[in-house]
């Protein structure tokens, strides 16, 4: 089932991306996107009964992280709708449940409160509905853990565009803090005046903090904010371009890899299937042939063919068409049986 993780993730992200582009958190909008993509068909196709269950479990586990931070509120709403949709359209019966980990419950509760305060009725209604339908397992961890240390899994990555970036600077410098700083500075100026010899005139030597501190701080934050917006826009554009490039490169690379694989499989398909004890002789013949100055390495005729050629001058067609170097072979029957054993190919995931 693991080979489905990557395409599943991409499909979910595709759906959420389209949902994000609509800039609406309404459920109708999501349902429209969902129908347009024909998302329930993800469960279609012949799957054995147990495979179906495992697949449902996998897709719910894959969709679950989008319902949690660090994703933005919009994506989390999309994640909730996605879970609702997948839970309701899955074909396993009884339905596979959505696993909620204890560590995430606090976040989910907060999300639910946010939705309520913002009066997104559809969001809270769907969450309530999932709960009353008993669609959740209240578990320790979002998935079963088997201690698979040797398996090299990709680190869980956070899709960049969905990320809700924390505005640390904005959090730090708010109007309240600015007011606070103004007050502190007033105090400071007064204290300076108090310790000074001449009343009303602060000592010019004590000049550690500039007087227009608050204004400067404010303007710095504003410029930073503007710069962030601009950079973000630029980055997004560039990111898109990069992504396009990346995928084309990737496809190129994969094409190359496929070509190599096909060449390899072809060459293995024609590989000389000689008896182990005879292999060394065969190689000898091959190398001596190439050493003899042949430009294109040609298939060696079998000993029998060569003998017949010498004796009669005629070469039988069937012997020539023998697919391997069969210098050691003196019979045709074996040759015929050889042809059938090849041609087994495996499915590449």
């Amino acid at each position: 089932m693991d080979y489905y993780i990557e395409p599943l993730k991409l499909d979910c992200e595709d759906l959420l991306h389209r949902f994000q582009e609509t800039e609406s958190v309404r459920y109708e909008v999501f349902a429209a996107v969902w129908r347009k993509m024909d998302f329930p068909s993800i469960f279609y196709g012949k799957m054995a009964a147990n495979e179906m269950r495992a697949f449902s479990r996998l897709i719910l586990t894959t969709a679950y992280p989008y319902f949690l931070p660090p994703y933005s509120f919009h994506i989390r709403v999309g994640g909730l709708y996605l879970l609702y949709g997948l839970y309701n359209t899955q074909l396993a019966s009884p339905k596979e449940k959505i696993r909620i980990a204890l560590k995430d419950w606090e976040n989910i509760n907060k999300f639910q409160e946010d939705a309520m305060n913002a009066q997104h009725y559809d969001v809270s209604y769907i969450f309530r509905k999932l709960i009353s339908e008993k669609a959740f397992y209240f578990a320790a961890m979002p998935k079963h853990l088997f201690f698979r240390v040797k398996r090299k899994t990709k680190r869980p990555t956070v899709c960049d565009e969905f990320w809700d970036r924390p505005m640390r600077v904005m959090d730090l410098v708010t109007t309240e803090t600015l007011e606070e700083i103004v007050n502190v500075q007033e105090h400071y100026e007064k204290a300076k005046q108090a310790i000074c010899g001449t009343p009303g005139q602060p000592d010019p030597a004590i000049n550690l903090v500039s007087k227009d501190l608050v204004q400067r701080l404010h303007s710095t934050v504003v410029t930073y904010h503007n710069w962030l917006d601009e950079a973000g826009g630029k980055k997004k554009e560039r990111g898109d371009a990069d992504a396009g490039e990346g995928t084309s490169k990737q496809s190129e690379a994969s094409q190359r890899a496929e070509r190599l694989a096909s060449i390899k499989s072809k060459s293995y398909g024609q590989a000389v299937e000689a008896v182990k004890s005879r292999r060394h002789r065969q190689v000898e013949i091959g190398s001596s042939e190439t050493g003899g100055g042949q430009a294109t390495p040609r298939r060696n005729k079998s000993l029998k063919a060569r003998i017949t050629k010498k004796m009669t001058g005629k070469v039988k067609e069937e012997i020539l068409s023998g697919e391997t170097t069969t210098a050691w072979r003196l019979s045709i029957a074996e040759q015929k049986s050889k042809g059938k054993t090849k041609g087994k190919r495996r499915f590449k995931w």
Partner: peptide
């Protein structure tokens, strides 16, 4: 199919 999962399947 438009979905990658389905293409794989």
């Amino acid at each position: 199919p438009g979905l990658r999962t389905l293409r794989l399947r």
